[in-house]
Each structure stands twice: as C-alpha cells, then as structure tokens.
C-alpha cells in the first residue's frame, strides 16, 4: 500500500481528518494497526472492511470516544483528546450501536440532541420538525423510539447527528435496515452537504452503495489500510480492468471469500 496515497486528501479544500500511525489494542488483540490516512474537506469518503477490520474502532477514536494506544489523530487540525469540545461541536456521529434514548419520542430525541449541541430550545424544535419531515418520520415523531423499526431508528440517529449542522459527519453503517426510497433521499441531501463543504466519513459493508456515493474509498483489513483512492486509482493499483467493481477490488485487497469446503455438510 502506497503510504503517500493514503495521506493524500482529495477534497475541495483543506485536510479535515488525519490519522498518523494510529494504533489501538485491546489486550493482546490489535484492532487498528498503525493506520495512516487523510480525508479532505467536502469528501464523501468510503471506509470499507470485513467484520472486525477495525472500522468502528477507528471512527470511535476519531470521534473522541476511544483513546488510541499510540499514533495521532487530527480533526480540523486539532487533537480530539486535547480539544474535545471544539472537535465535538463540529462533528456528527451515527455509531454502529445506535446512541438513542429509547424512551424518548423521535421528536424529543432530536430536540434533546440539538440542545446538547448548544441550540436554543426554539431552534432545536424547529430543526427537529424539519428533520422529521425530511426523514419521513413526521407521522411518527410523537412515538417512542422503542416502538420504531430498525430503519426508523437509523433515521432518528441520523437526525440527531445532523441537527447541529456538523462540518464532519461520521456514519457507521447508517443505511442498514433503511428502505431504498429513504436511502435515495438521504443520499441526495448528503451529497448536497458535501458540495457545501461538509465532509462525510462513511463506513459500510454495502459495496454498491459505497461505489455509487463515495468520491474516495479506503479498504481496511486486520486494522491496516490495504487500498485507498478513487475507484480508478485502485483498479490501476491492483491491475484490474475498467469493468472491475468495488467488490472485485475488495476481494483482491482483503483475500478470497469463505471456502465452501470448510463445512461440506451444509451443501451435501
């Protein structure tokens, strides 16, 4: 993997996210291993990897939730552990395990989130109403989150992450369980946001989606970056022709799919 390519942010403006030799261990297990990466302003950056590759751990470290074992993180040029409030005020996060209060209504969740980010009560309420409408939850804004389907909870979590209009958005599997119609609508708005300078750091397993929406992609495996760049750059790096999909690149970067022979009785 070319380290220079990983460090190169290719957004509209300056560098928004930078990881330098970022490492995180849990006991003997190394979840993230000397990861170096840069993401520029206005990028829709895809972050791919198989289960346990270290995607969520990386996002949590970047969001100031999980302290790195070694290495450095810079968000807008700031260390999120030295300047936590400045960094947190400018980012939005949709984590894998949804950070929602299930016994609040959707509307109350959004208002509470807005207040946490310093919006006054009236602005938070106004934005919550707008977001519920945009996310297709206007009919369900008065229901408790515990009564929401998985997709509705994802939408509510996205609303909570957007209500303060963040400059950087970390999305960890944000579309799993969300209906295709809503995905399309959300994608359009997120694209619009990137055109206006918001950076989106997008982690997903859905190759087709990442291929369609992301301007640049990094493939993570066993805690380190195996490939990074635009689709064309990665095809070229792996010697694949122009018809190769992101899935082809992913398989080449990470390894072969599960061997069928390991459990022959399943197909006998």
């Amino acid at each position: 993997m070319d380290e220079a390519a990983a460090e190169q942010g290719s957004g509209n403006g300056g560098e928004v996210v930078r990881f330098d030799k970022l490492t995180r261990t849990f006991g003997d297990f190394t979840a993230v291993d000397s990861l170096t990466l840069a993401v520029g302003e206005g990028e829709f950056f895809g972050f791919l990897g198989p289960n346990g590759a270290g995607k969520s751990t990386t996002i949590k470290m970047a969001a100031g939730l999980l302290k790195p074992t070694s290495g450095t993180i810079r968000i807008f040029g700031l260390d999120p552990y030295r300047h936590p409030m400045e960094v947190k005020a400018n980012i939005g996060l949709v984590p894998e395990e949804l950070a929602l209060y299930e016994r609040l209504t959707g509307f109350e969740s959004l208002v509470f989130s807005g207040r946490l980010y310093g919006l006054d009560a009236a602005t938070a309420r106004r934005r919550a109403v707008d977001l519920l409408g945009w996310l297709g939850l206007e009919e369900d804004g008065g229901k408790l989150v515990v009564d929401y389907s998985t997709g509705m909870k994802k939408k509510a979590a996205l609303g909570c992450a957007l209500i303060h209009r963040p400059r950087l958005l970390f999305l960890d599997e944000p579309f799993s369980g969300v209906d295709p119609l809503a995905v399309r609508g959300i994608k359009e708005v997120l694209h619009q946001m990137t055109r206006e300078g918001t950076t989106i750091f997008f982690s997903s397993h859905v190759m087709e989606l990442v291929e369609r929406v992301c301007t640049r992609v990094a493939i993570l495996h066993k805690g380190s970056v195996k490939a990074v760049g635009t689709l064309a750059e990665m095809r070229s790096a792996f010697g694949l022709d122009a018809s190769a999909t992101l899935e082809d690149i992913f398989v080449r970067a990470v390894g072969e799919p599960m061997a069928e022979e390991s459990a022959p009785w399943l197909t006998a």
């Binding site: 409030m85 947190k88 984590p95 395990e97 950070a99 929602l100 946490l116 310093g118």
Partner: peptide
Amino acid sequence: REGLLLLIGSPSP
C-alpha cells in the same frame, strides 16, 4: 446505557 454515547459525544459542558 447506550445514550451515554450521545452525551459524551456532545460538546455540552
């Protein structure tokens, strides 16, 4: 519980 993530992820004093 899970809501703690929202609290500590926020810039609120």
